Simulated scan of single mutants.
Amino acid sequence: MRILIVEDEAKTGIYLRKGLNETGFVADWVADGVSGLHQAQTEDYDLIILDVMLPGQDGWSILHELRKTRLTPVLFLTARDDVGDRVKGLELGADDYLAKPFDFVELVARVRSILRRGQSRDSSTLKVADLELDVTRRKATRHGKTILLTAKEFALLWLLMRRQGEILPRSTIASQVWDMNFNSDTNVVDAVIRRVRAKVDDDVEPKLIHTVRGMGYVLEERARPSE
């Protein structure tokens, strides 16, 4: 398993690389955000350990850019430990969040837990019921028929499928797909949801995209009510 460490503190970076290599992983370390994003986008890693405060480019923007093209699991490891930072990291698509100072044994346990959750998600096909999304080829199909999607519609469907079963507020969808501020008018989200729902769910059962009143949207396969 290959792990990329993006950490500007040399002492921490060297410690993590040495410890992870001795634990059986193959770990690379870079010390700035620009190099971290480049390496994450051009190399194949099973997991990325990412700091937030980095020279050149911070961890938030690295994850935001990475999630446009790659699904590599990300563990934030940072001294920023307030609830708002944890929520922001998870909403941006991080898989876990560990605050400094940390215990190395706990970090390894979290790394292994993330890796056990399933396949490395890069270049994979996401599937819910008979809806499939090929991330690499940027192709969506249902019942074996191709669904034509715009770039934003694809990004929206990818987000819903990647986080299937999770109710996503409009603000989260806006920030992930459009890079809009949480306080922005999110009527655009409703409009694109309607278009994607028409392409995915019209004349097809079961319906997969659902509105949760007062909360947002969720993509999941629900049991049909008994007749």
Rank of each mutant, 00 (worst) to 15 (best):
W29H: 14
V192R: 08
V26S: 15
S226G: 11
E91L: 05
G216P: 02
Q164S: 12
E22C: 08
A10I: 15
A27I: 11
Q57D: 00
K18C: 10
D32F: 03
T150W: 08
D46S: 15
R142M: 09
A151M: 02
W29A: 13
A94S: 10
F102P: 00
D96R: 04
E132L: 13
G216C: 02
W178I: 04
I173H: 01
T12Q: 13
I173Y: 04
E43D: 14
V26F: 14
Q39V: 11
A223T: 01
L90Y: 05
G144K: 12
D28R: 15
I14C: 09
E106F: 02
S35E: 14
A31Y: 08
S175T: 04
L149R: 01
P225C: 05
K127W: 00
L149P: 02
S124L: 09
I48L: 09
L149A: 05
A140Q: 04
K88I: 00
L50G: 08
D58G: 03
H143I: 06
E9V: 12
L77S: 05
L133G: 02
A129D: 15
T12N: 13
L20A: 12
H64L: 07
R162G: 15
R86F: 06
S184I: 02
A140C: 10
E7D: 08
D202H: 12
D185I: 08
P101E: 05
R170M: 06
D103H: 14
T136Y: 06
R112S: 14
V212L: 01
Y45S: 05
L50C: 06
P206K: 07
T141R: 14
S171N: 01
A191Y: 05
P101Q: 07
T211R: 13
A198R: 12
R70V: 02
G214I: 07
T23Y: 14
P55N: 09
D32H: 10
S61E: 14
E153S: 04
R80Q: 14
A109C: 08
T186P: 00
Q164M: 05
P101I: 08
D51M: 10
V26R: 14
P55V: 08
E9S: 09
L66P: 03
V212C: 02
A174M: 03
A79D: 03
R213I: 05
I193P: 06
S124M: 12
A191Q: 10
G144V: 11
I49V: 15
G36D: 07
G84M: 07
R213Y: 09
E205N: 11
M53N: 11
D122C: 06
V218N: 03
K139H: 13
V177H: 01
R197F: 01
V188I: 14
L208N: 06
A94V: 05
D96T: 02
V212P: 04
